[in-house]
Amino acid sequence: MSRKLLLVFTEVAPMVAAVRSLRGEGVTGLDAHTPWRVPEIENALEPDGPGVRRAMLIGGALAASATFAFQAWSAVWFYPLDIGGRPLFSWPAFGFATFEMAILGAAVTGFVTMIRRCGLPRLNHPFFATAETEAATDDTLYLSVPEAAAPDRLRLSKLSGLQGIVEVDG
């Protein structure tokens, strides 16, 4: 079981600076926990591309083609009916359901992908073990550093804007 150190910040700028400096020193395995999205940290940490949008594209395309194919198949081959003298293959009319299903397919695929890539739902994370991290959804920013890779406490305490250090199981 590896332990993690949570460096506590209350402002975005010093935290971003801390990330840069730690990364510059070759510390790996950094992560951040912020109550709101901080694009600068995302950029500084350079996590992998999420791949959500690619999944959405595939999901949407599959849903669309399946919907269109099903409409065409059922209207032309499976149960052909003379509906008001219209052609059996009424492709413009098939477009509506196709479009809606494309969006819905993409949305559902994206949602599932997002949840899975985030590793959610996960209700019992070590991060929640201490009440001190409750502020991570309020007004406090945490930078997590694996204890094994972390520089010594003295070095850490020199980071500007650091409000404290919390240890959690990781």
Partner: peptide, 8 residues
Amino acid sequence: CEKAPCEP
């Protein structure tokens, strides 16, 4: 109607 509007 051959092209019955009711059907579609």
